[in-house]
Design a protein around this nucleic acid. Structure first.
Length: 840
RNA sequence: GCCGGGGUGGCGGAAUUGGCAGACGCACCGGACUUAAAAUCCGGCGGACUUAGUCCUUGUGGGUUCGAGUCCCACUCCCGGCACCA
């Protein structure tokens, strides 16, 4: 374990560095503190909407208020700040805000386990995290900070709830929750361990509870599209899979059961071509028809099965590994296509919440139905013939296309055509219709918790569900709630909170005691940053119009579906209300990779959290910023390994000395030589500007740092030959280095800018532009290959023609020796790259 | 099982999208400076061999091509997501 402590400590010997000449040494602690103070005093990074520059909204996913920023947070924030600074120097009016996602379960757990109020716990964490964030040296304009647990924020979260309710997008419905019968409380999924209550060990059951939902499914089709936005393909695919659209047919099976008014049972299928192969019917155990149809002699068995499946958690029930079981309920439906009577079963592999909650069993052509039929000896009838089928029994379900058999008039038809033909026929007869079904469910936002925004609804015995009037917002969280360790919302037991009067009829009424899912808070925070001081609306429409949509949104891929999906839904709903005028909140999305430690994600519970603070105090924020960018491609992330940070620290020290030591005239060289050296210097400088600029645009930050290092190395080489270039040429190159370095190492660059006689501040300078002419190579190295094998290199003028290149290659001594007396069959010339001679 | 991403020196990673494999760093080795150490500076650093050179080398096997880390096929291992969605 001692080795672990060592790992977490920066190597101690990097701090003291002495110089050959008399130059004050690089002291990051001192200059970082100094400049951070100065920037704050001058409000250097203050943002307003009155700028004539084009706007740029650079957003980093705000952190949850867990307590400490670890190196993973820095990995999200430092590189995005570098990019935002780059855009700022490029002449944009940049909004790069920061805030806190402050509601959520951990605060409440802290309250229960340590007796500290969630508000106090959260705000202490905010203070500490804000202090850490300031040490990054980012351009956050702290006057725009947003904290979601403060009433001036959640007031508007509640307001959005009311708007969604008004538009019919929020509704109350039944949903199953994990329920502990001993604790008498709702449990979150993570509190259920192998089907048992984490706290008391009782078997957890699933229970229906009235909850609030958002009708996100209304936007299912639009959410599958990502038109006009630049997002990683991977994330778009995940979101499309999440929506899970499937097109098929809803088929009606005839029901004729004494005393039951329903005369049909509907199923959804993507394979109507297999309808003649239906040999049983399966309902979800919770299906409303189960009770009505079960025959008296099956009642006990069916009830037991239903109770058993309720006892299982969703996760267990959905596990594909589980063997399929079920119970025949003693009733039948009729398949209208062939008039056959088909037995009805219940089985928990059928989900009530998908399709119609009922499926037709076609064991020959569906793997699940096949397994089920085998287990209960149900008939397996082939209706789509596999290639070369000899009318024998199937070993496994055949799910591929084939020729229809045993299917009445449809026999002989290819099954893909059969899908259409059977659907047409069913529609003609009125026995079914084409339908679309989604995997996506409506968004359940109710949480039986204290630390969240209260849902602004009132239950009146006379008027029913009544929304809290807008002017009564916010519905404040009572401060003095009791935190009993039950896991149930303390609001339920808070008399003053619960008891109210109906806004409509003034009768005594009760408040909703559930709070909202915290994803609701993070679905609109990026709007609040545009006008955080706005107190008569959630946001100032004009300022939102100016800033939104977000130009570049960066954060972890773990939010690929939930957060990003909900935020998109939110914006589409607001658009349809006329509150915003854009379709998508985030124009470009970039996911940075994850920093792992000992092959695992960093987390407090694992005890493998790496704090940046020690590195910052030893080596400076600039070194940590640069190292995080250099250590791996940003989108990839990787294992945290601090052994390489010394290389960055050495480099920054080298820059310090290089720039401050200045450049002497040195020995005079001929003007021709001098010109050549100066041309080379300016060429390298312009190539570096090009490389650094392009890498920044593409967020390829590791190679950007490498380019800056190479430029530094080149300058060091030039400096060693003092006199080779003029003092002014040197100065220009050294200034370029500082400007290119400014986003990455803002403190160091500022200090050196000032010490080399420039005005304050380097961060208000324009980003250098490259000149394609000056960046052009005058000569280049052509590779000569013989039969694809590298045999020679030749330095040639960049202007060389194809013929010249080929001739030069053929006349090279080394090349000749490989050609010998053989015949040159073909010569391939790739300009700027190679000549390849094919000989035999 | 399905979807997505990946496998390059001792290590992190480069490679203008089919054209010099190993940029830039770390670690290591040698040298200079020093009483000494650190720091700094200079040089070396994929492997093998018959070492001014030649051959091999980008997870494995095959293919396309003048030319493959890059494209195609098969396999394999690792990471992320979904996981009975009819």
């Amino acid at each position: 374990m001692g080795s672990k402590t060592q790992r977490l400590r920066p190597s101690a010997n990097l701090v003291t560095i002495t110089f050959s000449r008399m130059t004050a040494s690089y002291n990051p602690q001192e200059i970082e503190k100094k400049w951070q103070q100065r920037w704050a005093e001058d409000w250097l990074y203050g943002v307003s909407e009155t700028s004539a520059k084009p706007k740029w909204y650079a957003l980093t996913m705000f952190p949850y208020t867990s307590g400490d920023l670890h190196i993973g947070h820095w990995y999200a924030m430092a590189p995005s700040d570098v990019h935002a600074r780059f855009k700022r120097m490029q002449g944009y009016n940049v909004l790069h805000p920061m805030g806190f996602d402050a509601f959520g379960l951990p605060a409440e757990n802290a309250a229960i386990s340590r007796g500290i109020h969630p508000f106090v716990w959260t705000m202490q964490n905010v203070d500490n995290m804000r202090r850490q964030l300031k040490s990054i040296g980012a351009i956050y304009d702290w006057s725009r900070e947003v904290i979601t647990c403060l009433p001036d924020y959640y007031k508007w979260t509640q307001w959005f709830f009311l708007k969604l309710y008004e538009k019919g997008l929020a509704y109350r419905g039944k949903a199953q929750v994990n329920w502990c019968p001993r604790c008498q409380t709702v449990l979150a999924n993570e509190q259920v361990v192998d089907g048992f209550c984490e706290r008391c060990g009782a078997a957890v059951i699933r229970r229906d509870l009235e909850q609030w939902f958002f009708r996100i499914t209304k936007y299912a089709d639009e959410l599958m599209e990502h038109n006009g936005i630049d997002w990683p393909e991977r994330i778009k695919i995940m979101q499309r899979n999440w929506v899970g659209k499937s097109t098929g047919t809803e088929i009606s099976f005839a029901l004729d059961h004494p005393g039951v008014e329903e005369k049909e049972m509907r199923v959804f299928t993507t394979r109507p071509d297999t309808t003649f192969g239906v040999t049983f019917m399966v309902l979800a155990p919770e299906h409303p028809l189960v009770d009505k149809l079960t025959s008296p002699e099956k009642k006990a068995e069916v009830e037991e099965y239903v109770a058993r499946s309720r006892r299982q958690t969703e996760i267990e029930r959905l596990s594909a590994e589980r063997e399929k079981d079920g119970v025949f309920i003693g009733a039948y439906v009729t398949n209208r296509l062939n008039g056959e009577r088909v037995p009805i079963w219940i089985a928990d592999y059928v989900l009530l919440s998908y399709g119609t909650g009922a499926v037709m069993g076609v064991p020959a052509h569906d793997e699940r139905d096949f397994a089920f039929a085998q287990r209960y000896n149900l008939l397996i009838r082939v209706v789509v013939a596999p290639p070369g089928w000899q009318r024998g029994e199937l070993e496994e379900a055949y799910t591929e296309p084939g020729i229809m058999v045993n299917s009445g008039n449809f026999n002989g038809l290819p099954s893909q055509q059969g899908i259409e033909a059977v659907s047409d026929f069913l529609e003609e007869k009125g026995w079914g219709k084409r339908a679309v079904t989604y995997r996506l469910r409506d968004w359940l936002i109710s949480r039986q918790r204290y630390w969240g925004a209260p849902i602004p609804m009132i239950y009146c015995p006379n008027c029913g569900i009544v929304p809290v009037p807008e002017e009564d917002l916010p519905v404040l969280l009572p401060e003095d709630a009791e935190f009993k360790p039950t896991g149930e919302s303390p609001l339920k037991y808070h008399e003053q909170f619960v008891n109210t009067t109906c806004p409509r009829c003034s009768a005594p009424a009760k408040r909703e005691t559930d709070t909202m899912d915290t994803f609701m808070c993070s679905s609109w925070y990026f709007l609040r940053y545009a006008s955080p001081d706005c107190d008569n609306a959630a946001f100032d429409a004009e300022r939102v119009k100016y800033w939104l949509p977000v130009d570049l949104y960066t954060g972890g891929a773990e939010h690929a579906v939930m957060h990003l999906f909900y935020a998109r839904f939110f914006i589409k709903a607001l658009r349809d209300m006329g509150l915003v005028d854009f379709d998508e909140p985030f124009s470009r999305l970039f996911n940075q990779g994850v920093i792992i430690v000992e092959r695992q994600k960093m987390s407090k519970s694992r005890g493998n959290v790496i704090t940046p603070d020690e590195y910052v105090s030893e080596l400076g924020a600039d070194a940590v910023r640069a190292y995080l960018m250099f250590v791996a491609p940003w989108e990839q992330g990787g294992e945290w390994d601090d052994s390489g940070i010394s290389g960055i620290s050495r480099w920054l020290n080298r820059v310090w000395r290089l720039v401050l030591e200045g450049y002497d005239q040195g020995v005079e060289v001929s003007s021709e030589e001098k010109q050549k050296a100066q041309r080379a210097l300016s060429r390298i400088a312009h190539q570096t500007i090009r490389k650094v600029t392009q890498d920044l645009e593409k967020l390829r930050l590791n190679t950007m740092i490498a380019a800056l290092m190479e430029f530094t190395n080149y300058l060091a080489k030039v400096k060693k030959e003092e006199g080779a270039v003029s003092v002014s040429a040197w100065k220009e190159a050294s200034d370029t280095l500082l400007l290119l370095l400014a986003p990455t190492a803002p403190h160091l660059a500022e200090e050196l800018w000032q010490q080399t006689g420039h005005g304050y501040s380097i961060h208000n300078q324009s980003w250098p532009k490259w000149d394609e002419e000056l960046a052009k190579d005058e000569e280049l190295t052509l590779v000569v290959q013989v039969n694809g094998k590298l045999r020679d290199r030749m330095v040639v003028p960049a202007s060389i023609t194809e013929d010249e290149a080929k001739n030069t290659a053929l006349n090279r001594q080394r090349v000749k020796s490989y050609i010998g007396g053989k015949k040159v069959l073909k010569t391939i010339y790739v300009p700027g790259r190679l000549v390849n001679l094919v000989v035999r």
